[in-house]
Design a protein around this nucleic acid. Structure first.
Length: 374
DNA sequence: AGTGAGCGA
């Protein structure tokens, strides 16, 4: 099947190659440049070259890496001499495992708008375990040009029974949903529907009921009466407050409690992102203090982990320094060993806990010495 | 039941 597709592609006749070439022409990127994603971090340029050079004349191969840690970012670019070779590589090598992990190939497209729009992106569940990437691709490609497609798998490579297909065009996605939702695939009735991010699903109207609305980025002059007037048109309000400091100055956020959750939801939907007195309001469901703290903690831990990964093995921690050692002296001492990206002698600072939390959210690395001591 | 990741450092 793949071989047949490849031979017709080399004659320039395969539907996928034609569609890809059309896509390339439409968005003016060369159809010789491939994006290769889902790479195992151990995959290197040379190995990738060996795989792709089997198909045709490879101009260049590059695994993208983090600037500081040089760790693989899990994707690469492969450039071919001719669009025909690139099309053939896409058809023949897509989903080929390298170092145990199936690669995912797409045409390179520097414009991220199609990818992030999530339009024409569909979700498939209740897939039989025997359905792999290729089978999914073959089933769904009849509706239009596929940009990206994959069956979710566990680390061992076993199907998790669901997957994703992103088409180039909305029409293709609609047709696939229309024709395949509820159909049998390998004797299992599959669900095919639009892809909806988990977060958007959780927040979908009616999913979570709430009465209390949080509003931030208020102008300093905005009062409870202003909020009453603006929020009041969505329904009956039981309480409204603008939070203030000891001197009565607005902290520029507040809460509006509605009698009905439906009206609270309406207010959020309508007012979030609107501008008042030149300030763009954030309006959303009010979280409990514990919820908010949990969210901040997760955010912080994620930032910290990212920073730690990025600077893994590049950051030195020195202690027991003499008082006379300053930034300059440290830099002189270490300069001969390589390029120094930053160099700092720290002192002990006492701060309120809330301020520390804010600071750390911005700059997780500040925390590292403390964490190491724990 | 389970709703990714993602573009040339």
């Amino acid at each position: 099947m793949a071989a047949q597709a490849a031979s017709s592609a080399s004659e320039g006749g395969s539907p996928a190659a034609a569609a890809a070439a059309a896509a390339a022409a439409a968005s003016s990127f060369p159809a010789t440049s491939l994006y290769v994603g889902d790479l195992d971090v151990s995959v290197q340029d040379a190995q990738l070259f060996d795989v792709f050079a089997q198909i045709g004349g490879v101009v260049s191969v590059r695994v993208c890496r983090d600037v500081t840690s040089r760790k693989s970012l899990g994707y690469a670019y492969v450039n071919y001499n001719t669009p025909a070779d690139a099309a053939r590589a896409l058809e023949m090598l897509n989903f080929t495992p390298i170092n145990g992990r199936p690669i995912r190939i797409m045409y390179s497209n520097r414009d991220p708008s199609l990818r992030k729009s999530g339009t024409a992106n569909i979700f498939i569940k209740n897939l039989d375990k025997s359905i792999d990437n290729k089978a999914l691709y073959d089933t769904f490609c009849v509706f239009g040009n596929i940009l990206s497609c994959k069956v979710a798998t566990d680390p061992a490579g076993e199907s998790k029974g669901y997957g994703f297909v992103q088409y180039e065009r909305d029409e293709a996605a609609h047709a696939a949903i229309e024709k395949l939702n509820g159909m049998l695939m390998n004797d299992k009735k599959v669900y095919v529907g639009p892809f909806v991010r988990k977060q958007e699903r959780d927040n979908s109207p009616g999913n979570v009921k709430f009465n209390n609305v949080y509003v931030k980025n208020l102008a300093e002059t905005t009062t409870e009466d202003d909020l009453k007037e603006i929020f009041g048109k969505f329904g009956a309000i039981t309480s409204v407050v603008v939070m203030r400091d000891g001197d009565g100055r607005s902290k520029c956020f507040g809460f509006v409690n509605f009698e009905s959750p439906d009206e609270a939801a309406l207010a959020v939907q309508d007012l979030n992102g609107k501008k008042f007195s030149d300030k763009e309001w954030y309006v959303g469901r009010a979280q409990k203090k514990s919820e908010r703290e949990m969210e901040l903690k997760e955010k912080f831990e994620k930032n910290l982990q990212e920073a730690a990964d990025k600077y893994q093995n590049t950051n030195l921690y020195l202690k027991n320094l003499d008082d006379t050692v300053d930034d300059e002296k440290l830099r002189e001492l270490f300069a001969e060993f390589g390029t120094i990206t930053s160099c700092k002698v720290l002192c002990v600072i006492q701060m309120a806990q809330a301020e520390v939390l804010d600071l750390l959210l911005l700059n997780p690395l500040m925390m590292l010495p403390e964490l190491l001591l724990k």
